[in-house]
């Protein structure tokens, strides 16, 4: 009837079965985390372990915030940094990608492979030299090493934006030029309004990547109050390695904000990632 999607009842049942079976693998560990954080410390040392807490308790959160009162501060820090990174990634990468997709200059095809090449460099090569650079700029112990590079075009996002821009018909550009528009108006008034999915995708990817980044803040930030959540959690492990419920509670807190963000925006992401349809 519809594109040959022959839907039988047993077929649907099988699909649900497969989905649920896989769900155990993906959600299982998270459920175990939830269960652990609501147990008493002693119950986590029980053999065999109990799947669900015998008596629900939220004391783990009290202990978590006693051991590490900076948790909230770290969450705020992560938020601030990630928002600036996401904004920067969208603005700078879209502008650069516009250059790489709409200008018929010979330099374009020479430079674009270099953009992709930078994706290939191991961050480890950059780790220490970058540290020296940031130290010379007096950026150590500030958020600048985490934020500024995002405002100067990330190769991955430039690539995604460019791929998306290539799917927007050139005729629209030309119509704008006929109406007296220029390069910038095409970018700002034509291309960008049509690129909502990739904008949202980039915001989310950049936000998430910044939120999850470990090595950057680990190297560049020394002051505990400036830590991001990722690095803060690492400190927490060092500080209370035996307290499984408190650790699980810390992990839980680190997922909530970003989980919510994703839940509300996921529709755009799938629309935004367009990789097929044109040869790089």
């Amino acid at each position: 009837m519809n594109g040959g999607q022959k839907m039988s009842l047993s077929g649907t049942a099988l699909k649900y079965f497969l989905l649920c079976a896989t769900l155990i693998v993906f959600a299982g560990p998270l459920v175990w985390m939830l269960s652990t954080m609501m147990k008493t410390k002693m119950e986590t040392y029980k053999i065999p372990p109990s799947l669900f807490p015998e008596q629900l308790t939220f004391e783990a959160f009290d202990r978590l915030f006693t051991v590490q009162p900076l948790m909230w501060k770290w969450i705020q820090n992560s938020f601030t940094i990630s928002i600036f990174v996401a904004l920067g990634a969208v603005i700078s990468s879209s502008i650069v990608a516009y250059g790489f997709s709409r200008f018929a200059t010979k330099y374009r095809d020479k430079l674009f492979p270099i953009v992709l090449l930078t994706l290939m460099i191991p961050p480890s090569i950059m780790m220490i030299p970058s540290y020296v650079l940031f130290a010379k700029l007096h950026w150590i112990d500030t958020w600048l090493p985490l934020i500024v590079p995002a405002w100067l075009g990330g190769a991955y996002y430039i690539f995604l934006f460019r791929q998306f821009f290539l799917t927007i018909p050139q005729e629209l550009d030309e119509a704008t030029y006929l109406d007296g528009g220029n390069r910038w108006t095409v970018y700002a008034k034509v291309i960008m309004p049509l690129s909502k999915p990739i904008i949202v995708t980039t915001i989310i990817f950049a936000f998430v990547n910044s939120w999850l980044d470990f090595l950057g803040p680990f190297l560049y930030i020394k002051n505990n109050e400036m830590f991001t959540l990722s690095v803060g959690l690492q400190l927490l492990i060092g500080q209370t390695s035996q307290d499984f419920p408190a650790l699980a509670a810390g992990a839980f807190i680190s997922i909530i904000p970003i989980g919510l963000l994703y839940f509300f925006a996921q529709r755009y992401i799938v629309e935004g990632v367009v990789l097929t349809g044109s040869k790089g």
Partner: peptide
């Protein structure tokens, strides 16, 4: 037309540089 092109492109630069310099400035 040309002017506005220039302006808008310059704006990007200014934005980028501003970030760098405010950063530097603060720190110094």
């Amino acid at each position: 037309n040309t002017k506005s092109k220039w302006l808008s492109s310059a704006w990007i630069m200014v934005l980028a540089m501003a970030i760098i310099f405010t950063g530097c400035g603060n720190n110094t």
